[in-house]
Computed example of a mutant assay.
Amino acid sequence: MNYFIIIALLVAVDQVFKYLAEFYLKPISTFPIIKDVFHLTYGQNTGAAFSILQGKQAFLIIITSIVTIAMAVYLIKSLKKQNRLLLISLTLIISGALGNLIDRVRLNYVVDFLDFTLINYPIFNTADIFVVSGSTLLAYFMLFANPNNSQKEG
């Protein structure tokens, strides 16, 4: 399986959704899918997760680029090990990081559009879903599925 093709496809999906949000949601601000539960709401985030580091675009671009390159190198080196959970987690994280990086470089902000109004959760996007899903899988791999993870019995 070519994980870099999957990365390209996931980044394309993310960018298409963000384009649609820019085109259709920006003029109307929000569209309720399930009223007071889940809306499509247009947002521009100039920070990182939960809007931390607002306005620090250059810093976020540099850090995201360095981390993404390091993860891509690690992904290439991990292809020989054939641990699918590790490879899928890295693929998802890289895809999400690239999706948001493209926004930062192109627009100077990240387009957000998924809004769980029921729990007043911050608006997010598909790239964020990829990063969180990949990070969750990576944490599981590191804690439970990694054959090199030896736990001492006490």
Rank of each mutant, 00 (worst) to 15 (best):
F116P: 07
D103G: 11
E22F: 11
F4L: 13
A21Y: 15
S29G: 00
F59D: 02
N100G: 05
A139L: 15
H39W: 12
I28T: 14
M71I: 10
Y140V: 14
K77D: 03
H39R: 10
L25M: 12
S150L: 09
A97M: 06
V111K: 04
H39T: 07
L114M: 13
Y3H: 08
M142D: 09
L53F: 15
P147L: 05
V37R: 03
V131T: 03
N120M: 00
I88F: 11
S51N: 15
F113L: 08
F113T: 08
G43P: 05
A12H: 06
G99E: 04
I33R: 06
L98G: 07
T64P: 00
D115A: 06
I62N: 04
A58G: 01
S95K: 02
A145E: 08
L118V: 05
S133N: 01
V67F: 14
S135R: 00
V16G: 14
F31K: 10
F124C: 11
I123G: 02
M71C: 09
Y19K: 14
A21D: 11
T117I: 07
D128L: 03
I119A: 14
A49G: 11
L53I: 08
S150N: 10
I94Q: 13
D36I: 00
D115P: 04
F23N: 12
M71Q: 02
I62F: 10
N120G: 11
L101Q: 09
V132H: 01
T91A: 10
I62Q: 03
F130Y: 15
M1A: 14
T41P: 11
K18R: 15
K81S: 10
F50I: 15
A12M: 14
K18S: 14
L79Q: 09
I66Q: 05
T91G: 08
L85C: 08
N146D: 15
N100R: 10
A70P: 00
A58E: 02
G47T: 12
V110Q: 06
L98Y: 08
L40Y: 14
Q57T: 15
Q82H: 10
V110H: 03
V67W: 03
R84C: 01
F38R: 07
L137E: 04
L40G: 05
P122N: 07
Y19P: 05
S135P: 01
Q82S: 12
P27R: 08
Y74H: 05
T46V: 09
